[in-house]
């Protein structure tokens, strides 16, 4: 058997590149995009933990069984026919979204054990907790920024007084609001005294961290036993991109170069991935002006094509190679 199933999304370039390598290695690849939910009849057999997807167009059957190697790259198993979405009352919609989501997460957890090899997880993407990850990173040996989540102005003021420069960001994901008329978002931002002054004494719980003065950031993509590290130098050193490297500036784009993790940091990463029970993901670290490694966050289904391209790591080749090996194991 040399069948690899990839659960992904239509426009994911990394999936395309891995498939190219897999086909040259002689693998039979089945790509399932979560957007194509209308195209499949899907059944999950709880007893043996197998998933069957039957294409309504070609009648071809994809079976995820104990013979299948699965790379869960993006999205999830296309279980819920699109045509039914948003046709119900908002209350029923909410119930179904949660109810079916529960099954999809359950299947994800079961397949991790029943498939021949399974890497990547929508469950982990959905159920990732920044504060838990920080806590576990500390346990794995990393330094972490001083972090509080509070709804209390006096606590926040005390935090600000102690660390002077503090930042905030969303607890779960990036702050982003979109309506038909407008879109506004924010990654990581500095919290100024003026912002604090406008707050009532009791406000919505928010995360605050002390600002780490960095030499550079390190992005690590992990795939099974493979680690790919890249250092990111943001310019100017003092100023705009210091807080959030995503706010790249055109005239002086970030420099992204290959990086070798010191052995202890490499070991801490592996330890952390065991703690959170993840085989793949992307980790962001800061190397502070004190030369210490600060853990920022982990992204279970993050993009790695930029790491691969900028450092010439050929990550897609390594992934395809590993999946092929797993087929023949």
């Amino acid at each position: 058997m040399n069948e690899v199933v990839i659960i992904s999304e239509r426009l994911d370039k990394s999936t395309d590149l891995v498939i190219e390598w897999l086909t040259t290695f002689g693998c039979n690849v089945q790509r399932i995009n979560y957007e194509d939910a209308n195209d499949y009849h899907v059944s999950f057999f709880v007893e043996n933990g197998f998933v069957q997807l039957e294409s309504k167009i070609t009648e071809k059957i994809v079976l995820i069984s104990n013979m299948t190697v699965v790379w869960h790259r993006r999205g999830y198993i296309p279980f819920r026919p699109k045509s039914y979405r948003k046709t119900h009352h908002i209350m029923i919609e909410g119930f179904l979204e949660n109810d079916i989501g529960n099954a999809i997460k359950g299947i994800d957890l079961i397949l991790q054990h029943t498939a021949k090899y399974y890497i990547g997880s929508w469950f982990k993407e959905k159920e990732t907790y920044k504060i838990l990850n920080l806590h576990l990173a500390k346990k794995a040996g990393f330094k972490i920024p001083k972090t509080i989540v509070t709804n209390c102005k006096t606590e926040l003021q005390a935090f600000k007084d102690e660390y002077e420069n503090i930042i905030s960001k969303g607890l779960d994901r990036m702050i982003l609001f979109t309506t038909n008329e407008f879109s506004a978002g924010k990654g990581t931002f500095m919290v100024t005294q003026e912002m604090i002054d406008t707050l009532p004494s009791h406000f919505e719980p928010t995360l605050f961290q002390n600002c780490i003065y960095k030499l550079y950031e390190v992005r690590i993509f992990i795939f099974d036993t493979h680690l790919f590290s890249m250092a990111i130098f943001s310019y100017p050193f003092e100023g705009k991109t210091r807080v959030d490297v995503r706010e790249d500036i055109k005239e002086r784009p970030n420099r992204c170069i290959p990086y070798i993790l010191p052995k202890t940091i490499d070991e801490q990463i592996r330890k952390f991935m065991k703690f959170v029970d993840m085989k793949t993901g992307s980790i962001d670290l800061i190397v502070g002006t004190d030369q210490e490694y600060y853990f920022l966050e982990v992204n279970p289904m993050g993009q790695f094509d930029w790491v691969s391209g900028l450092c010439n790591y050929n990550i897609e080749y390594t992934i395809a190679n590993l999946l092929t090996q797993k087929c023949y194991e």
């Binding site: 030499l215 290959p258 450092c311 010439n312």
Partner: peptide, 22 residues
């Protein structure tokens, strides 16, 4: 921006001159 200063220069390897296409 062609150079930077670092106490750990050995952590910054060159880009591998390896050309691969499927």
């Amino acid at each position: 921006d062609f150079i930077f200063f670092t106490k750990t220069p050995n952590l910054f390897p060159p880009i591998k001159m390896e050309y691969k296409t499927a």
